[in-house]
Simulated scan of single mutants.
Amino acid sequence: MRRADRLFLIINALRGRRTALPARQLAITLEVSLRTVYRDVADLQASGVPIEGEAGVGYVLRKGADIPPLMFTAGELEALVAGTRFVRAFAGERLAREAQAALIKIEAVLPPDLRERAAQSRIFAPIWRDTFQNEVAAMLDRLHEAVLAHRVLCLDYTDAQGRSSTREVLPLCLSFWGGAWTLGTWCRHRDAFRNFRPDRIASCRESGEVFVDQPGRDIAAYLVTMHTHYAGLE
Results as ranks from 00 to 15, higher is better:
2 R>I: 13
11 I>V: 14
14 L>M: 09
18 R>H: 12
23 A>I: 11
28 I>H: 15
29 T>G: 15
29 T>Y: 15
31 E>Q: 14
33 S>L: 11
34 L>E: 08
35 R>Y: 15
35 R>P: 08
37 V>Y: 03
44 L>S: 10
47 S>K: 10
47 S>G: 08
48 G>P: 09
50 P>W: 06
50 P>Q: 13
51 I>R: 02
57 V>S: 14
62 R>M: 14
63 K>Y: 14
64 G>Y: 09
65 A>S: 15
68 P>R: 10
74 A>Y: 11
74 A>N: 09
77 L>H: 04
79 A>C: 06
86 F>P: 02
91 A>K: 01
93 E>Y: 06
98 E>A: 09
100 Q>F: 05
101 A>R: 08
103 L>Y: 03
103 L>N: 04
106 I>T: 13
109 V>R: 09
113 D>C: 09
114 L>H: 03
115 R>L: 11
122 R>Q: 15
122 R>G: 12
123 I>P: 07
124 F>P: 04
125 A>W: 15
127 I>L: 11
129 R>S: 13
130 D>F: 11
132 F>R: 11
134 N>M: 14
135 E>R: 13
136 V>D: 02
136 V>H: 05
137 A>L: 07
140 L>C: 09
143 L>E: 01
144 H>G: 04
149 A>I: 03
153 L>P: 01
154 C>M: 10
157 Y>E: 02
158 T>G: 12
166 T>M: 04
167 R>H: 10
168 E>P: 01
169 V>P: 00
171 P>R: 01
175 S>L: 07
177 W>N: 02
178 G>Q: 10
178 G>V: 06
179 G>P: 04
181 W>P: 00
187 C>K: 00
191 D>W: 12
191 D>H: 12
193 F>E: 01
195 N>D: 03
197 R>E: 01
199 D>I: 01
200 R>M: 14
201 I>K: 00
210 V>N: 03
210 V>A: 08
214 Q>H: 13
220 A>R: 04
221 A>H: 05
222 Y>E: 01
225 T>Q: 01
226 M>W: 06
227 H>V: 06
232 G>N: 10
